[in-house]
């Protein structure tokens, strides 16, 4: 493929990749030695230059790193999700050490997500069965939302400062609205069984699946109520949270092993990118590009795939700037690939 760029994260297996929301040439990679099982973590800050990808800086951590999120308010700040249960904030103008480290989670932190609307808070989720909300200015978390289940992914809505979501090993998509009063429900407003609800009298029978661990999800950037989920059962699903009982809108089967990461396109409302244990990245449309009806006819399909990684692909992200197809992927093969999805479509 022409124009594909590559960077070797020597000795470190990739876990997550994020483009800077401020600079079109800056990418962060969260990575871990020994496949994230034991040993150090490393956060790479990489620059896209005329001479290829160059490391501007890196930060080493005691334990593995599983996810990262750029601050939406400060162009030099970035948080990481750490295997020892800590969440750390780095300033890339400084060297070596984080400017803040919060040690509250009891187990591996697996995802971090910055609030895209108010920009002053971020969320983390952990295998300890909680989501925590943080402010960079505060020494302790602001709020803890229990899920009672190993929570692989949490994300703020790109359309509201107070709505966030999570998916976890109990096969459920949760929606929290922080405007609801603090009560026994802990701000939980929807609990959606991803595998499908059991058949109920009076409702038409639906295709149902056994529950399975859900590993990743993402909010659509244009349609404020649409979320895509995926995980161990290999099927990507989209849900409309305005009608949580309706089950999935689109089912996109195709990956051969569990899906590790999903990202909706920042440019096209129907396009999704996925990364999987089957070593591929795939581009999908959920079938909503033409008419709203298409999705019910199963118009969703795979548009193309990247097969260049040689190990589990763990992270993908879209470039927010410039032409509408550029993205980056990281893998346990210790490589970051920067590529244009238009080059793999229709192959």
């Amino acid at each position: 493929m022409n124009g594909m760029l590559e960077y070797q994260t020597q000795g470190f297996n990739g876990y997550a990749v994020k483009y800077s929301p401020f600079f079109d040439s800056r990418i962060a990679v969260a990575s871990s030695a020994n496949f994230g099982l034991v040993g150090n973590g490393r956060l790479y800050i990489l620059g896209l230059t005329a001479d290829g990808i160059q490391a501007e800086k890196w930060f080493d951590t005691q334990d593995s790193l599983y996810d990262t999120a750029w601050s939406e308010a400060h162009e030099n700040q970035i948080v990481v999700a750490c295997g020892d249960g800590s969440v750390k904030l780095f300033d890339i103008a400084l060297n070596n050490f984080p400017v803040q480290s919060w040690q509250e989670h009891n187990r591996e932190v697996y995802s971090v997500s910055w609030n895209l609307v108010s920009k002053d808070t971020f969320a983390s989720s952990s295998w300890d069965g909680t989501i925590k909300i943080w402010s960079p200015q505060r020494p302790t978390s602001i709020l803890t939302l229990p899920t009672h289940s190993c929570t692989y992914s949490t994300a703020f809505s790109p359309h509201s400062p107070s709505v966030l979501s999570s998916v976890s090993s109990d096969s459920h998509l949760r929606i929290f609205d922080l405007r609801t009063p603090a009560s026994a429900s802990n701000h939980l407003v929807h609990l959606i069984p991803i595998h499908g609800a059991p058949p109920a009298p009076g409702l038409p029978a639906r295709q149902s699946f056994p529950p399975s661990e859900c590993l990743t999800h993402d909010w659509n950037k244009y349609r404020s109520s649409i979320i895509a989920t995926a995980g161990v059962d290999t099927i990507i699903r989209t849900f409309d949270i305005r009608n949580p009982k309706a089950g999935p809108l689109a089912l996109l089967p195709g990956h051969e092993y569990a899906v590790r990461k999903l990202a909706w396109s920042p440019h096209l409302s129907d396009v999704l990118l996925s990364a999987s244990y089957d070593m591929t990245c795939r581009v999908w449309t959920d079938g909503t590009s033409n008419t709203q009806q298409d999705v019910f006819r199963g118009g969703g399909k795979e548009l193309g795939r990247l097969g260049r990684h040689t190990e589990f692909v763990t992270g993908v992200d879209w470039c927010l700037f410039g032409a509408e197809g550029w993205c980056a992927s990281v893998s346990w093969d210790q490589r970051l690939l920067v590529w244009d999805v238009r080059a793999v479509m229709g192959q």
Partner: peptide, 30 residues
Amino acid sequence: MSAAQKRLGQVSGHLAGSKSGITPTEGDSA
């Protein structure tokens, strides 16, 4: 069990689960 073993267990769980997802027998995967 050590932390590393638990993490390995988690990853192998992801793989074991999806492997049986490929074979179409629903009972097996449940």
